[in-house]
Amino acid sequence: MSAAHQNVSSEISLPQKHSGDFVKRIWKTFWILLIITIIELGLGLLLHALDLPDNTKRLLLKGIIIILSLAKAYFIVSVFMHLGDEIHNLILTIVIPLMLIIWAIVSFMIDGDSYKHMRNKYDKHFLERTMEVPPKTTKPAQ
């Protein structure tokens, strides 16, 4: 059947487990991705509809959405890209360099946040122009 003609090179031993089960796994992953996306959308719309003034609650909702997105990324990489079926060596050589991204996210978000606080403190015009509350009056009309 499928085994004989997939002989690529003597240096590689291809897995021989692709059967009907794998198709089932693909569709199962599809439903998982779809359901997670729908939940994400629900939370995103909730975030929009509630327009929470409370920063902590808003960040909590956003945090849940981010974790759900990471779960989606895991399923796409692991099942669709078959990385979960590869050998340990390959998984590590791909995943470990990506850890740098975590450092980049943390440090650059902190940097952006610190820039905001410094501008709000030293540039009152910036604060006035961009604070969350709508302005009560505009410049006097001529």
Partner: peptide, 20 residues
């Protein structure tokens, strides 16, 4: 890098529009 720079700029703003 693109998305992180977007995030950093967004974190530096007092106001950002709501995607909805």
């Amino acid at each position: 890098a693109f998305l992180i720079s977007y995030g950093a700029i967004r974190f530096s703003q007092n106001f950002w529009p709501n995607p909805g």
